[in-house]
């Protein structure tokens, strides 16, 4: 049995119809695609800069952080293709001396460890392994509550905080992330209501919690929390400036960095953590959509991905065994989330 939710999707992108948030018009086109067509017709954007100009801007930005200490920057790596490519760009394209930080949220796939070891060996980058038990401790109580929560959001905040704390400890002022184009969350405003509701709910659940109550200020207002605590650390996503397509990235890191794709991960051909099955299942069920739908739709609208391929990706099966094994790690069963 598959646990994917069936939805009526926009004819142009893959956003599912979600009353009050994503409306389809009589021709089957969603409100986001209609808004996109309007802004697209409008004016100049950063996207239109030449590849050389974009790269020169990035180089200028990162050069300010060179030779300021033992490391020029931190690159947080999950072992997935985008973060490994970011590490490659940092070393080979930008000439930086990075500290690679491998982040394991407790659900990292085995292949990811090997990918990170290979890439850091070949690129000659120091590596710090940070494996947190936060998710293993926190998620069972959140899941048992049955509240509407977006687990990727909860996890990302904790991991960002960990990476930025490491920057601080090592006196590093620059953090490079592997965010791709579709992931410019500030601009994907269709996700804001999901973030807001998830943040409100986790705040209620954490209020007065002896183990996690200290995280309350972070979830109450992430923007403010991160500015207050880490406002001096610059975070840059090289993918905003450097043009690559997925096939080129895969070919390059496979050839040069001995990268291997995981045997199984959701969605197809991704390298997301083993909890992503549960997070995605719950996001579809509770909110209708989340980051994956939004990111893929951005790529479809910009012409980087065909709608058919995006649909195939988002419909990668979520099998019962995927959910069960992720939940098992938390001491839970399917009944706890259905």
């Amino acid at each position: 049995m598959r646990y994917n939710i069936q939805a009526k999707r926009c004819r142009c992108c893959i956003m599912p119809e979600t009353p009050g948030h994503v409306e389809l018009d009589e021709t089957g086109v969603c409100s986001l695609c209609r808004a996109f067509r309007q802004t697209e017709a409008q004016q100049e954007t950063f996207e239109q800069f030449s590849p050389e100009k974009k790269l020169a801007i990035l180089q200028k930005k990162v050069d300010r952080y060179k030779n300021k200490g033992e490391y020029d920057c931190v690159v947080a790596v999950s072992g997935g293709k985008d973060s490994i490519m970011t590490l490659y760009i940092a070393v080979r394209t930008l000439g930086l001396k990075p500290l690679a930080v491998f982040i394991d949220n407790g659900f990292a796939l085995e292949e990811m460890y090997q990918n990170v070891r290979n890439a850091t060996d070949i690129l000659g980058a120091d590596l710090l392994i940070y494996k947190t038990a936060d998710m293993l401790r926190l998620f069972p109580r959140l899941l048992r509550s049955g509240r509407r929560l977006y687990y990727c959001r909860i996890c990302h905040a904790l991991l960002d905080r960990a990476v930025l704390s490491i920057c601080q400890k090592y006196g590093i002022g620059l953090s490079l992330g592997g965010y791709t184009k579709g992931q410019q969350y500030l601009r994907n405003s269709e996700l804001f209501w999901i973030y807001d509701e998830s943040d409100r709910n986790i705040c209620e659940l954490l209020d007065g919690d002896p183990d996690f109550g200290h995280l309350l200020p972070m979830y109450q207002n992430q923007q403010r929390y991160f500015t207050e605590h880490f406002g001096r650390i610059r975070q840059i996503s090289p993918f905003k400036y450097v043009e690559w397509n997925e096939d080129e990235i895969l070919a390059l890191i496979t050839r040069e960095l001995k990268w291997q794709k995981p045997k199984r991960s959701w969605p197809d051909k991704s390298s997301n953590c083993a909890f992503n099955y549960v997070a995605q299942y719950l996001a579809e069920k509770q909110f209708g959509y989340a980051q994956h739908e939004s990111e893929l739709s951005v790529q479809v609208r910009s012409g980087e991905l065909t709608r058919a391929r995006a649909e195939e990706i988002i419909e990668s099966p979520i099998e019962e065994s995927d959910l069960v094994s992720a939940l098992q790690k938390l001491g839970l069963t399917l009944n706890d989330i259905l």
Binding site: T39, Q42, Q43, E44, T45, F46, E47, Q184, L186, R187, Q223, T227, G231, R234, Q235, K240
Partner: peptide, 16 residues
Amino acid sequence: TTELISGGFIESFDII
């Protein structure tokens, strides 16, 4: 009238 944020020229970090 150039759209600085939606045009991708500046980010939240820059605004701070």
